[in-house]
Design a protein around this nucleic acid. Structure first.
Lengths: 117, 117
DNA sequence: CTGTATCCAAACCGATACTG
DNA sequence: CAGTATCGGTTTGGATACAG
């Protein structure tokens, strides 16, 4: 006999919902991209701009500032001549990587299938 | 209501990054929440509204339509009296669940730590 | 090379009221 | 109960130009 699906109360995560908690950090379409490209190590503005196809400098700048404000990345000034800057993931940022990995994994699978179709 | 997939020249089909592919499906702050609450089985409008605290009916409606348009969920009419409707994850939608799970997992961890501090 | 400033369009979100 | 309509606000994003 088929199990009667009981309409349960939702498994409600205690508020505030951990989803929103997390989405605040990686909200915005470009944000996961930036984190992903920083996962390989420190990178500079121009490198990121090259990494991420078609991102405008304004958006990259905005995302970087936003990520710095939420503590996901850190901006490090390199005292060279000329002085330069690098962006690196903080420890908090590193903890988001499993999510990004999953996104990449599923995204690749979806795209493969679409190309096959 | 037409789905507005933004198809600018910035969207190159050959883009090497599968992240955007995936983020298009779960963009928006409420979207992961909706998917999460549908993971337990079909749910109706009012139930979802109850599940997700503080979502306005307008936003819920918008997210549901958008998710339906991208093929993540399906709207099923129940021939009862009165006729009713349920929303259920499609197969595509189910494939997104590992991501949502990760988001919940990391989000919970972050919150625990913040409360400890 | 590393960004910032400006203008503008579209998406997202909240509050509220409303229809069947 | 199951949504839609309207109004308005904030955020995201694109294009382009420009400054250090």
């Amino acid at each position: 006999m088929a199990l009667k699906i009981r309409r349960t109360k939702a498994m409600k995560p205690s508020s505030p919902c951990p989803i929103s908690e997390c989405m605040k950090l990686l909200g915005g379409a470009w944000t996961p991209n930036v984190i992903w490209y920083l996962s390989g190590g420190p990178r500079r503005f121009g490198e990121l701009r090259n990494d991420i196809p078609d991102i405008s400098p304004k958006m990259l700048s905005a995302r970087l500032h936003s990520l710095e404000a939420t503590g996901v990345i850190r901006r490090e000034i390199i005292a060279s001549s000329p002085p330069s800057a690098e962006y690196v993931l903080t420890e908090l940022g590193s903890e988001l990587l499993p999510i990004i990995d999953k996104i990449v994994e599923i995204g690749s699978k979806l795209r493969e299938r679409r190309q096959a179709a």
